[in-house]
Simulated scan of single mutants.
Amino acid sequence: MKRFNIRILSFFLTISFFLTCSFSILAQEKRNDTKNYDFTKNWKFGGGLGLGFGSGYTDIMIAPSAIYQFTPYVSAGIGLQGSYIKSKDRGYYYNAIKEYDSWIYGGSLIVLSNPIPQLQLSAELEQLRVNNSYTYKDLTKRDDNFWNTALFLGIGYVNGPVTIGIRYNVLYREKDMVYGSGFMPFVRMYF
């Protein structure tokens, strides 16, 4: 499994490096006219919202982000994320848990590369603080608080301001209990 992760990471990093270098060289050919340069026109804002409700289950997530478009091919930015999950009597750990609460918050750095207008490659480094609280059927309580780091490498199809794709967390470990899988689909919007 570790060998597979290293191969994927090496592939994406190599492709991203060559694309970034080649687009930087292309960007050098443009004339630098600082007199008419508008710094604000290259910023894009977006993010995600998530809501999930069910019988004894609530999941609310908000994740705003901003990127700066350096060239038509490369952009980078930052993001924030906050989420709250509450679950009651859902059968975790063989029905031992009566209630589960989780607050997750943190930030991320993101780099996007568009080698062609319809294709987007991404790398996102995410650092989250996870605060889990468990109440067991015998009414004992336990808190589990930790930091989780994720490095997502992704590929997506771009249509206007929307990108739909899949990303893989190369640092994924099942025992972290933050994400259910290393692979995650995504929808990304920037305006």
Rank of each mutant, 00 (worst) to 15 (best):
Leu119Gln: 01
Phe4Ile: 15
Asn145Asp: 10
Ser55Gln: 15
Phe45Leu: 09
Trp103Asn: 11
Ile110Ser: 00
Ser181His: 12
Lys2Gly: 15
Tyr172Lys: 02
Leu128Ile: 04
Leu49Ile: 10
Ile62Tyr: 02
Glu29Cys: 06
Tyr73Pro: 00
Asp143Ser: 10
Leu171His: 03
Leu19Asn: 10
Gln69Trp: 01
Phe152Glu: 02
Phe11Gln: 03
Phe53Val: 15
Gly156Thr: 02
Gly52Ile: 12
Lys2Leu: 14
Phe39Gly: 04
Asn42Leu: 04
Pro115Ser: 02
Glu174Gln: 14
Ser102Thr: 10
Phe45Pro: 03
Ser24Asn: 11
Arg188Asn: 08
Phe183Gln: 02
Tyr172Val: 02
Leu139Gly: 00
Tyr93Ala: 11
Ser22Ala: 13
Lys86His: 14
Val158Ala: 08
Tyr92Val: 05
Phe146Glu: 07
Arg173Ser: 06
Gln118Thr: 14
Glu124Pro: 00
Cys21Pro: 00
Asp176Gly: 00
Arg142Ala: 13
Ile67Gln: 02
Trp43Asp: 03
Gly182Glu: 02
Leu125Glu: 02
Leu128Cys: 01
Met1Lys: 10
Asp101Cys: 04
Leu13Arg: 01
Asp89Cys: 06
Ser10Arg: 10
Ile78Arg: 00
Asn5Phe: 07
Gly48Phe: 00
Val162Pro: 01
Ser22Asn: 12
Cys21Arg: 05
Leu119Gly: 05
Pro72Arg: 08
Val162Cys: 09
Phe12Ala: 02
Ser181Val: 03
Tyr134Arg: 07
Tyr57Val: 14
Asn36Met: 06
Gly47Thr: 03
Ala66Cys: 07
Ser108Pro: 01
Met184Tyr: 02
Gly180His: 10
Lys88Asn: 13
Pro64Gly: 01
Gln28Lys: 10
Phe191Gln: 05
Ala123Thr: 12
Met184Ile: 11
Asn114His: 14
Tyr57Leu: 13
Cys21Val: 15
Ile67Asn: 03
Pro64Tyr: 03
Ser108Tyr: 05
Arg142Asn: 15
Ile166His: 03
Tyr68Asn: 06
Gly107Gln: 05
Lys98Leu: 13
Lys30Tyr: 12
